[in-house]
Design a protein around this nucleic acid. Structure first.
Lengths: 336, 336
DNA sequence: CTGAAAGCGCTAACAG
DNA sequence: CTGTTAGCGCTTTCAG
């Protein structure tokens, strides 16, 4: 069928061992053998079997990635960064887009295990017992990127959501806002939903600003959700002067809702986002957003996973907290 | 080390063959054996090795995907569709984001080959001799999605770029425009660059509208390129009344450039895009765009590849041309 | 420096 | 219905 190492050996007039040696760039091969083997490989168009090699070496150079939504700019950017760095370290990526489907995630975690991936990166916004239990019993390192790990024994690369939301809220307060709305993700999730909301709330408390329950609404981090929630907000008799959306997609949804109702942003109402996805810089007005270091997050996730894979013993499994940064654009008005 | 089929067999008190049989859901296993094997699997937390299985069966259930840019909404949406359908057919996806880097693409094509993927889907905008030669000599089916294949013997799933651009242009002409600008991708590429431009040009010719060379500009399909080209356009003494951007990203770039200069779209200048990415519906004004059936493209790509894999003989390798559709939004004014 | 041979974990005849 | 055994294509002792 396909040409194998034996064929190359025969053609080069050497043993399979020698071929294997040049394949793996070992020393202790004579110039002569090296040349003949390379020639034979060339002539036969030999392509070594990664599968056979993996089986023998018990090493696949593969890592699995769980993405919650490939079409989201935020996640596809992290994935892009993960891919770039994986490639640098010689890992191949097998990716699963769960699209909200937790049973698909679980299924793929088992597939990853059967494929003997060397590590797994999970980015999901929700989880369930089966998944947590898989993670706890897993034999390969698993790392959570941009989301909290289900329990402190697992490593996670993320920002301090609480502090970031707190800082964003203080920025709004400093700009003179007191009628502040919060459009959040689902509080029940393991995600940042709770932390971001708490950061928002505590900033208001610190500055002794009363929380108007009408201004607090929860959706699902996606654009249509921001749009729908904003619609409710705008229907209120007394509107907020600014809305803090807990994701950029929600912020854009809110922006579009306002724009479509003929309002001007930020003159009629201000909007601030969260994530720092490129979309904030694409829409008009460009949206002020609490930026996560997306590229860095992918990079550090991969580097950390690599360390976990190669030196499992020496690695502490503590979270890595990256720096957030408020990027001021054109969607927030000062109303001092 | 890890538990293997032999351990399960021993534990269940049967032969490895029997275990293998229940693993593969074959008939001819007694209730009794089935139960005991499943119990042993459970107790030992046995996870069958996909690698060993692949080696033996000479089948990996894996396909490789080359994506030009993961952060692009257009490609990540196709990828998402490919992933969803791959999962349906039981394929695992290994993905490479080439990010304009053709030598990375070539490297990964060889990796895909070593991994014995069963098929490859390529979405790239450029190519070179090495890649073409790889494709021509490849032993596994290779399919081009959303882009033209380098030569007619390879299958490609795409729209009729020429006709789509022609239709979009006629729409503009019907709306009364004669001062029409074209912002294109690179004509030299194997991409749709040439076809789209030709469609545009021929529509003008058919309607006897002179082509103003100042209005024809080429960039790279990305947002900043559209922005820069638009800037040149707006600096012209006599501006076009509409600009046809050959990609949605370019259209958004053009839109932002116009907006940032204080112009109103479509009142001061109209814009039409190409691709039908979700971004066209997110910006304001929403952009009229010639839409590719993105989801369907991913689905049909995967189905076709699957057919190529399972029934290589019976499959014709002709291109599959999908229907384009103009989606009218708010960025084009009638000027009759 | 080079080669023979023993597996890596699994499936698939083949024989019972 | 069940078990024995020979590989799948490669790497790696272990001897030369």
């Amino acid at each position: 069928m396909t040409v194998k190492i034996k064929d190359v050996a025969k053609r080069a007039g050497v043993s399979v061992t020698s071929v294997s040696r040049v394949l793996n760039g070992e020393k202790y091969v004579s110039e002569d053998v090296l040349a003949r083997v390379n020639e034979a490989i060339e002539e036969l168009k030999y392509s070594p079997s990664h599968i056979a090699r993996s089986l023998k070496k018990q090493k696949t150079n593969t890592i699995g990635v769980i993405v919650p939504d490939l079409t989201s700019n935020f996640y596809s950017t992290i994935l892009s960064s993960i891919e770039e760095n994986a490639s640098k370290y010689g890992y191949n990526l097998i990716v699963c887009n769960i699209a909200e489907n937790l049973s698909k995630e679980l299924k793929y975690l088992y597939i990853f295990q059967e494929m003997r991936v060397e590590g797994i990166i999970i980015m999901h916004e929700k989880t369930n017992d089966d998944i947590v239990s898989f993670v706890q019993n897993a034999t390969m390192p698993i790392l959570f990127s941009s989301v909290k790990s289900p329990d402190p024994t697992f490593m996670s690369v993320l920002i301090d959501d609480y502090q970031a939301a707190f800082d964003a809220t203080e920025y709004l307060i400093d700009a003179g806002h007191t009628a502040i709305s919060y459009l959040g993700g689902d509080l029940q999730d393991i995600t940042s939903g709770q932390s971001r909301y708490n950061g928002f709330r505590d900033a208001l408390i610190k500055h002794e600003i009363a929380i108007n329950p009408d201004y607090i609404k929860f959706g699902d981090y996606k654009l249509p959700s921001g749009q729908a929630l904003m619609k409710e907000l705008l229907a209120l008799p007394n509107r907020p002067t600014v809305v803090f959306a807990a994701s950029d997609d929600m912020a854009v949804g809110a922006l579009n809702c306002a724009l479509d109702q003929g309002l001007y942003v930020p003159d009629d109402i201000s909007i601030i986002g969260f994530d720092g996805s490129t979309i904030t810089n694409i829409v008009r007005p460009a949206i002020t957003s609490m930026q996560q270091p997306i590229y860095e997050m992918g990079q550090i996730s991969l580097e950390s996973l690599h360390r976990l894979i190669t030196r499992p013993k020496t690695q502490q499994k503590t979270d890595i907290v990256l720096q957030h940064e408020l990027v001021v654009r054109d969607s927030c008005k000062k109303i001092n």
